[in-house]
Design a protein around this nucleic acid. Structure first.
Length: 434
RNA sequence: GUCCCAGUAGUGUAGUGGUGAUCAUGGGAGGCUGUCAAUCUCCCGAUCCGGGUUCGAUUCCCGGCUGGGGCGCCA
């Protein structure tokens, strides 16, 4: 604990009756009843009630307390008193109260959650929004999700790497990139670590993962897209798509388990009853999914991706996490390995939640000649990929991998509607600040 | 990219071709010794911008700006 503070609010218990503590935090509410005044102090852990009885309190201290603005930052030292009627069974009888930072008034939004606020209002004042218990709970869970991912991948002997976010060329064609000026040259913000993690397979590191920002310049405007998102990516050598699918489903199971065990108060705050999904997830072939979509009345041509409506129909038919496997080669990126026996199909998969796609992956092409051929076939210029293709000429093992959307994992886990709710400072088409 | 929708106190909302523009929360003053969505009395605070129709527009029409959402695309 810091020099200023001896305890978090939740670290104080009634059996500490009589001992002196110093708590620090924000003035959540003040209830002045005339002869007695209650100051509710809020910190990251919870609330502490500071009780001032007029007759027994120094007049200056009493007056300072009752005149505090909401959300001012204060430091309160005093004696812990066990009290039945107090919220957590105790209250603090102050000996001193320091006003460390006075809050302006009125506040840009309500912190006590009595009155709602639009997402836009909340994001404009995100630092205040984070003072709300529900918002704090979401980001605490997010931390535990990422921690669980790291622990799991580490236990599977993956090494964490960081690849460049400023790149010279598009990874896969298709999606739009953000152009930037790099000294005198044109450069882009990376849409995916794909090419770099594949290059690392030629290094012999064998199993790598990266948790990092990806950028997409698409002008979409939905509850499940952002222009800057966080991707969890892995790549593994001497593996096929089924090997990495198995890693992925065990990772999902492990993350759910970790969160259900370590985020009990947060889940309660959010009203989420978390059940760990059963393994293994169903493997549904693309062709089967087409049939499901058709029988639900959705038009899907073989070789097309599923529209949102068809995707939801398939999702509600399956009802839980599932893998959508064996996609047509034509709708997957050039680095996706086709089946040798029928090149119309590829060794690819998407991990689906009934609400949306969470991840996609595949076994990759590791033959230089085939890869170059596929790049050309998709209308891309192989010269722009020389730095990448070079890694396939001097001993590249077979490999497979996937990319998982961190935000989508969290929003489906916590039943969050809007992807912006699970990113501290989201970047969408309209928002560039804060 | 495209289509739809919305802009009313700090915040969240109701409603209206002529209003004293609703309610809650908030803020100010006062009362109250056990509050915990404290409570009571009094008070404060708003119709996005520009043009048009009209005797009169916050309301109807057009444009703008800002925001929200669907689809496409994707994670």
């Amino acid at each position: 604990m810091s020099a200023m503070r001896t305890h978090y609010a939740s670290g104080i218990t009634p059996d500490m009756n009589g001992s002196t503590v110093t708590v620090a935090g924000w003035v959540h509410e003040i209830r002045d009843l005339g002869g007695i005044c209650f100051l509710v102090l809020r910190d990251r852990s919870g609330f502490a009630q500071v009780t001032l009885v007029k007759k027994k309190t120094d007049p200056d201290l009493f007056d300072t307390a009752r005149r505090l603005n909401r959300e001012s930052v204060v430091l309160v030292s005093g004696a812990v008193k066990a009290a039945e009627q107090a919220p957590n069974g105790y209250e603090v009888i102050p000996q001193s109260l320091d006003l460390l930072s006075e809050s302006d008034s009125p506040l840009p939004m309500d912190v006590t959650e009595k009155v709602g606020a639009d997402i836009d209002t909340r994001l404009d004042s995100r630092f205040i929004d984070l003072r709300r218990r529900k918002t704090l709970a979401v980001f605490t869970v997010r931390h535990h999700v990422l921690r669980a991912v790291r622990e799991f991948l580490e236990s599977e002997e993956f090494i964490e790497v960081h690849t460049p976010k400023v790149v010279a060329a598009a990874t896969e064609g298709g999606t739009a990139l953000f152009p930037i000026t790099y000294f005198n040259r044109e450069a882009f913000l990376n849409q995916s670590p794909q090419l770099y993690k594949q290059i690392l397979m030629a290094s012999g590191i064998d199993r790598v993962y990266e948790i990092g920002a990806i950028f997409r310049a698409e002008e979409h405007d939905t509850l499940r897209h952002l222009n800057e998102a966080t991707s969890i990516d892995i790549e593994a050598s001497f593996a096929d798509q089924f090997d990495v699918m198995e890693i992925l489903e065990r990772l999902i199971g492990s993350v759910y388990l970790h969160v259900s065990q370590n985020c009990v108060p947060q889940l309660r705050e959010l009203g989420v009853d978390l059940t760990v999904p059963k393994l293994p997830f169903r493997r549904v072939k693309y062709d089967e999914a087409i049939d499901i979509a058709h029988s639900a009345g959705h038009e899907v041509e073989w070789g097309d991706d599923f529209g949102t409506a068809a995707e939801r129909a398939i999702g509600s038919e399956i009802g839980e996490h599932y893998f959508l496997i064996d996609w047509p080669t034509v709708i997957k990126p050039y680095y996706t390995n086709p089946y040798e026996e029928d090149v119309r199909y590829s060794k690819s998969f998407d991990l689906m939640h009934p609400r949306m796609e969470l991840a996609s992956g595949s076994q990759r092409i590791h033959s230089f000649d085939l890869l170059r051929e596929r790049i050309v076939a998709q209308g891309l210029d192989p010269d722009g990929f020389e730095f990448y293709l070079k890694a396939f000429r001097y001993g590249m093992p077979p490999h497979a991998g996937w990319g998982l959307g961190t935000e989508r994992l969290i929003m489906t886990m916590l039943h969050v509607e809007n992807i912006r709710d699970v990113v501290l400072f989201p970047r969408d088409r309209k928002r560039l600040s804060p």
